[in-house]
């Protein structure tokens, strides 16, 4: 019985580079021993040898499978150990799991991408796909918020993304010193008065639970229907294959049926935005 048939066994990977994004967020560039094709939004279980696993959606393009980026916030046991890894260290990889973003449903639409904090990481994988085929989408509007200017990830890419035809990119921070010339306020404040034909739009949202909740309420408030909203939901995960039980919202397992869920499917179940 080889490890490839065993859904619980990790494949080997090597950390090739570590990028410090913010004081609490790093991107690990991981080279897997064998290439692992994935769709944007699908996630992997990343193993710190001897410590355990945690789920991350690669933040790199699915068109680049030889090297996978994982942008990780230092917040729990496994993520803390991941932050201590250096170039050349070994990690384990399982996956990809889940369905990934509904890219086909976004075609011909005004795509609204809303990110909060490290939530821009999985969305970056989607953005690369959208940018590669930008003519297929009416427009891509990106709304990104973080706590402070120093908590923004991928700052070096903002200018490049903004310059792409049909891409509109807005950033806000919850609070900042006088040197910050941009928007201040939580991410919902840059969703007021958006220049989007809402009936022709699909929103894709990723961020912390509290942000998902208030962005959803705001989107509904400005005219989005539940069917037009996709949320990258957060739950603890273990197996990644819908067996271990813990990542459900109603009958859906985020690991198998998500992690991006159409809000219409989940909105009536208990504890959707449990915190």
């Amino acid at each position: 019985m080889s490890n490839s048939q065993n859904p619980y066994a990790p494949l080997n990977g090597i950390v090739e580079q570590v990028i410090v994004e913010t004081p609490t967020i790093k991107t690990l560039m991981v080279r897997p021993d064998t290439q692992i094709p994935f769709r944007a939004g699908q996630f992997m279980q990343l193993t710190v040898p001897g410590v355990g696993e945690a789920p991350f959606t690669p933040s790199s393009s699915p068109n680049r499978v030889e090297l996978l980026d994982f942008t990780i916030l230092d917040t729990g046991t496994v993520t803390h150990k991941l932050h201590n890894l250096n170039k050349g260290d070994r990690v384990g990889l399982r996956g990809p799991f889940g369905k990934g973003y509904p890219v086909d449903k976004l075609k011909g639409k005004e795509v609204l991408v809303v990110g909060g904090g490290v939530g821009l990481a999985p969305l970056r994988s989607l953005l690369y796909v959208l940018f590669d085929e930008i003519a297929q989408f009416k427009r891509v509007s990106i709304k990104y918020g973080a706590r402070s200017p120093q908590d923004l990830v991928y700052k070096n890419s903002f200018e490049k993304w903004s310059s792409i035809d049909n891409v509109d990119f807005t950033v806000t921070v919850d609070g900042a010193g006088p040197e910050w010339k941009g928007n201040t306020g939580v991410v919902t404040t840059i969703l007021d008065n958006i220049d989007i034909k809402i009936s022709d739009s699909i929103a894709v949202v990723c961020g912390p639970e509290i942000m998902l909740k208030f962005v959803t309420l705001k989107l509904i408030d400005i005219g989005y229907k539940a069917e037009q909203i996709y949320l990258s939901m957060n739950r603890r995960m273990s197996c990644g294959t819908g067996k271990c039980g813990r990542c459900n919202i109603g009958p859906y397992y985020l690991c198998k049926d998500g992690p991006d869920m159409n809000y219409a499917l989940i909105k009536d179940y208990p504890n959707v935005f449990g915190m």
Partner: peptide, 15 residues
């Protein structure tokens, strides 16, 4: 179901 950072979708025993 407790996540890193302390959040849980089923915080209360009833849930």
């Amino acid at each position: 179901s407790k996540m890193a950072g302390g959040g849980s979708p089923r915080f209360g025993l009833m849930e």
